[in-house]
Nucleic acid binder design. Structure first.
Lengths: 190, 190
DNA sequence: AGGTTTATTGAGCGATCACTCAAGATTATA
DNA sequence: TATAATCTTGAGTGATCGCTCAATAAACCT
C-alpha cells in the first residue's frame, strides 16, 4: 500500500552529521538542513521528527564511526600502534568537515544551556573512553605498555589530550601534527 | 553639556563576558544581554554598537584576565610552580561561569561559519601561548626545567593539553583534578 | 533660566527561527 | 480500476532574532 521514500535515510544522516559537525547545533538552521538534504520541511519532519532528534541520530552515527575507525586501527597496527596513529589520522584527515571532535563541540555548546543533548554527547564520550581503556588493556596484555598504569586513568588522559589536540588542529597556524607526534612519543615511553 | 551614563561600562563588560563564556555567541541573545545588563536596546547599541562588537570586547577582557592570573601565579610560585598550578586553579574555580576556555569555545563555534571573530579568538590564544612560552623560558633560566626543550614547543603542547583538560572539566563525571595532577607531574618530570 | 548635548526608553522593523498541515502525487492492495 | 496508505510539496504559523529610531529625560554650558 505504501509509497517508498525517495531518499536514502542513512545517507541523509551522514550529510546532516557533517553539517552539524562543522557548524554546530545552533549554527545549523532548518533551512541549511533542507538545502543539504534536499528535503522540504514536511518530508524532513516526517523523516526525523525534529531538528534535535536528527542531531541525536547524527551524534550516534558519529560515535559509531569513531569506534569503527579505532577498531580498524587496532586490527592494522595493534593496540599501541592504534593509540599512536589515531591522533595523527584525526588531525590530517582532509575529508572531515572539522578537525575538532563533534561530541566535544556539542558538550561545549549545549551544556551551558542545560540542553539534554549535552548529556547524550557526554554519554557517547564515556563510551569512547571505555573503548580507549580496553585498547590500553590490550596493549598491556601484549607487553607494549607497562602494566603498572591504570588503564582507565590512561584512557581518561588520552581522551583529554586528544580533545585538546583536535581543538588545536581547528586553529589557524598551529602545527597539530607536531603535537600528535609528541603524544605518540609519550605513549611509547609508557 | 552631557548627561552621564548610569551604568559602569567595565562592570557591564564583565557581566557580558560571563554570559558569553557560559552560553556561547549564538546561544546568547540580545534579550539575554538586555536582561543581565539591565539595558534597553537603545542604550545597548549606543554603548556597544552591536552584539559582535561587545563579544569582541569581552574576549579581549577574558584574555587580559588570563594573562594577569598567570602573572600572579608566577609571582607567587615561580615559573614552574605557576605552570603546575594554573591548570588546577582553572579547573577548581567554582566562581567561573564555565570550566572550558572561552576562546577555545569561540574558535570551535565560529570557525565553522567563517566568522571573523574566530580569527580574533585565535589571535588571543596565540598571545596566551606566547605568554606560556615566556614562562617556560623563565623556568629554564632558573634551572627548573631542562634547557634541552624548545620553549615554544612546550608552550604549544601545554596549551593544547590545557584546552583538553578544561573541556574534560566541563563534562559530568570526569575527575578533572586528577588530569590536572597528571599534567603537573609531567611538567616536573621535564 | 535657556539652550545644548547626551542617555534612556520602548514600540516596532524586516528577517529568520523551528515547525505545521492541507493538498496533491505516487505506489501499493483489493 | 478503485481504494487505501504513504510521501512530497510549499505556503504559512507564531515566536524570536539582531537592531533602529523618534520621543522623552537628565545634566552640563553660558
Amino acid at each position: 500500500m505504501p509509497r517508498k521514500p525517495e531518499y536514502d535515510r542513512d545517507d541523509l544522516i551522514n550529510r546532516a552529521r557533517d553539517l552539524f559537525w562543522k557548524q554546530g547545533w545552533a549554527g545549523t538552521s532548518l533551512k541549511d538542513l533542507e538545502r543539504v538534504l534536499r528535503l522540504k520541511p514536511g518530508s524532513f519532519y516526517a523523516a526525523f521528527g525534529s531538528k534535535d532528534a536528527l542531531f541525536e541520530e547524527t551524534m550516534e552515527r558519529y560515535a559509531e564511526d569513531g569506534g569503527r575507525r579505532m577498531a580498524a586501527l587496532v586490527e592494522e597496527f595493534g593496540p599501541l600502534g592504534a593509540l599512536c596513529t589515531f591522533p595523527f589520522r584525526v588531525v590530517t584527515n582532509a575529508n572531515a568537515p572539522a578537525k575538532a571532535c563533534m561530541l566535544a563541540k556539542s558538550v561545549l555548546e549545549l551544556s551551558g544551556r542545560d540542553h539534554r543533548l549535552a548529556a547524550v554527547a557526554n554519554r557517547h564520550l564515556e563510551t569512547m573512553e571505555k573503548r580507549f581503556a580496553q585498547v590500553f588493556r590490550d596493549a598491556q596484555t601484549r607487553g607494549e605498555i607497562s602494566a603498572a598504569h591504570d588503564p582507565h586513568a590512561l584512557a581518561r588522559r588520552y581522551q583529554s589530550d586528544l580533545m585538546g589536540l583536535r581543538i588545536s588542529a581547528e586553529r589557524e597556524g598551529i602545527d597539530a601534527a607536531a603535537i600528535a607526534h609528541e603524544m605518540s612519543e609519550g605513549l611509547r615511553r609508557l
